[in-house]
Simulated scan of single mutants.
Amino acid sequence: MRAVERVFHSVSFEVIAVTLSIAGLAAFTEHDIAALSGTMIVIASVAMVWNYAFNWVFDLYVKGDKTKRTFSMRLFHVILFEAGLLVLTIPIMAYLLSVSLWNAFLMDLGVTIFITIYAFLFNLSYDHIRAAVIQRRACNNQV
């Protein structure tokens, strides 16, 4: 993937994730769209910074070829990442939405579960759509 495509992938992932998270929270809470929108934009920004910092530190401690990491190491990685993100974002969500830490935890946990499933489906779909586009371009160039 070239840099422009990586930016497109990341931005489209985040825009859709934030939009769907806002809609989901609006459906299950009493908060207005404006408060949820601001909150989710802040949470997504924190997540992007955390992603960079966490993976940098993780890679300092877990050496070796990343393609050879075991399933259990990958599971450990994602659980540690998500736990750290929850620790960072629960107080932010509680403050911005004026809810208790417990309510923020429940809301944030719901978003985390959703984002995990969404990330899997988004990347699976993106990979297949990308392959189809590349194949179509190759066919058009041969004609």
Rank of each mutant, 00 (worst) to 15 (best):
R2A: 07
V4Q: 06
V4K: 11
V7F: 05
S10Y: 06
V11K: 04
E14Y: 06
V15S: 07
I16L: 13
A17F: 00
V18N: 02
V18T: 04
T19V: 14
T19W: 05
T19M: 08
A23V: 02
G24W: 00
L25I: 01
L25S: 00
F28N: 00
T29R: 00
T29F: 00
T29Y: 00
E30K: 11
D32N: 15
A35M: 05
A35Y: 00
A35D: 09
L36D: 01
S37T: 15
G38P: 10
G38W: 13
T39D: 01
T39M: 03
T39K: 00
M40G: 01
S45I: 08
S45N: 08
A47N: 04
M48I: 09
V49L: 14
V49S: 05
V49F: 13
W50I: 04
N51E: 10
N51A: 12
Y52D: 09
Y52Q: 13
N55D: 13
W56I: 02
W56R: 09
V57R: 09
D59T: 07
L60A: 13
Y61E: 11
V62G: 08
K63S: 12
G64A: 11
T67E: 15
T67S: 15
K68F: 03
K68Q: 15
T70N: 05
S72E: 06
L75I: 08
L75G: 02
F76T: 05
H77F: 12
V78A: 14
I79K: 10
L80F: 14
E82G: 04
G84A: 14
L86Q: 09
L86G: 08
V87I: 15
L88V: 07
L88E: 07
T89G: 01
P91W: 08
M93T: 09
M93C: 05
A94Y: 00
Y95L: 07
S98R: 04
V99L: 05
S100W: 03
N103P: 03
A104P: 01
F105D: 09
M107S: 02
D108P: 05
T112A: 15
T112C: 14
I113T: 10
I113Y: 11
T116V: 13
Y118L: 08
A119M: 08
F120V: 15
F120E: 12
L121H: 10
N123S: 08
L124I: 07
L124G: 04
S125L: 13
I129Q: 05
I129A: 11
R130Q: 14
R130A: 14
A132P: 03
A132I: 09
A132D: 04
A132E: 10
V133M: 12
V133N: 03
Q135E: 14
Q135W: 05
